[in-house]
Design a protein around this nucleic acid. Structure first.
Lengths: 242, 242
DNA sequence: CAATTTTCATTTGTCAGACAATTAAACGTC
DNA sequence: GACGTTTAATTGTCTGACAAATGAAAATTG
């Protein structure tokens, strides 16, 4: 872990990589305290600011946490799913916005993944998940709701569905797919008519999950996917006219 | 973007967040040059090392790239899918290893997501994808293959299947799920008999995808998921005896 | 004038040393 | 023994400096 080629550029990146590899390989277990910045500087034969830049890189990925004081230092962080959600969502959102991913492609991916969760959710959903879904359906029927609030409620509804599968790995993966879609969905203006249709499909899905009917839930998701694609196409067509 | 509360700790984290928000919101477009470190230090009223630590945090997330020289500086980076793969895999791997995620949970998530790709892959796979799958099946039949190499080939096979869906968003999401499983799979010792079974199922899947038969591909994946779970249970049972 | 070389200014990368803030342990004091 | 005080260790930040890279401008040369 203490190797460093004599290339005097990217030193902090090299040090960060060395420590990261040690963490990923398990050589540095969770909650292990790293040597102090001064010691690391000695070991790698660099200055303390360079070590600090390397540690900040790792902190940005939630791989370490730091603590001041006598018994302080940098500690290997237990990467929790909640911590990873945020990064996953940020990354997914940027990937979509920076790579000219079409609405159709993103939508297809999102519903394909969500349909994978539906059978598990139908089987294992708890009262909590059902209650969240019903509450969001109710919210979506409020007349004064802005389009942004409608989309946010939509995200909450679908995340409750995904979480219903009771598999944290799935919830983590889907967090990116579902939340990253929100900026794209926000382009759509939801008329009273389209909201009614969506709420109807949400109700169909919630009913199916309540009844533990995986097939019906899948039907609802398919219909919702199709309808969402159609709404987006209408927006695109309307823009083309201008 | 220039706001900074007078809390004199975590300055670099606050600055990183301010710039990150500007990038995510689109205020800083791709390839835009950030002010020089000296200018940023002036604007945020901090020292240059503090600014540098903030920039290193962003660089660790591939949000910016830096360049030395007269026209150098920090530029907003176009986050590419290839760049994000690595981070996704690292994060997923650590999440699994640090959170006592059971083999069953990880396996369930992985195959649920992979099954979501199968119908699309059956529809759109190219000759390239089919060739990769066949090549890996062939490799998996080599007698001298180590268990690690067998697992690596397995990953390549399944990534070809996922890529066959022709949806970069799906490929990105699945990269984490599929690759992060590899360390867990490496725990399993693949006997000649189990390899034969797996190769048989791989062949069934490849045949189905070749014939564009989504249902058969799904059958193969389900069988593979079940068999993998069973192999893992055998390993766990054998360990319990010791 | 054109092409090439040189110089130079700008910017990042790194270093050294310093001080402030925080924290827990060691130490005294009652 | 309980409670405040000191102290040492550690991170967070600042200042100032120099090296290295790099493109642009200036000087030189044919």
């Amino acid at each position: 872990m203490k190797i460093d080629p004599s290339n005097p550029a990217d030193l902090s990146a090299q040090i960060a990589k060395a420590i990261r590899d040690a963490i990923v390989s398990g050589a540095l277990p969770v909650d292990e305290r790293l040597p102090s910045e001064a010691e690391l500087a000695d070991q790698f034969d660099v200055s303390r600011p360079t070590v600090r830049e390397a540690l900040k890189r790792l902190a940005a990925q939630s791989l370490i946490r730091t603590q001041r004081g006598a018994t302080g230092g940098a500690f290997v962080n237990r990467l929790r799913f909640e911590d990873a959600y945020g990064q996953q969502i940020t990354t997914s959102t940027l990937l979509l916005s920076m790579n000219d991913v079409s609405f159709a492609t993103a939508c297809e991916a999102r519903y394909a993944l969500e349909r994978a969760c539906a059978p598990l959710a139908a089987e294992r959903r708890t009262a909590d998940h059902l209650a969240t879904m019903r509450a969001e359906i109710h919210r979506q029927q409020q007349p004064g709701l802005t389009d942004e609030a409608f989309c946010a409620s939509d995200v909450t509804f679908h995340r409750a569905l995904v979480d219903g599968a009771g598999n944290p790995v799935l919830s983590y993966q889907l967090a990116g797919a579902v939340e990253a879609m929100q900026p794209l969905m926000n382009m759509i203006t939801f008329s009273a008519r389209s909201r009614e249709t969506i709420v109807g499909l949400h109700t169909e899905i919630a009913d199916a999950v309540t009844a533990q009917d995986a097939d019906k839930a899948d039907d609802g998701l398919c219909a919702l996917a199709q309808y969402t694609q159609q709404l987006a196409q209408n927006v695109i067509a309307a823009r083309a006219k201008d």
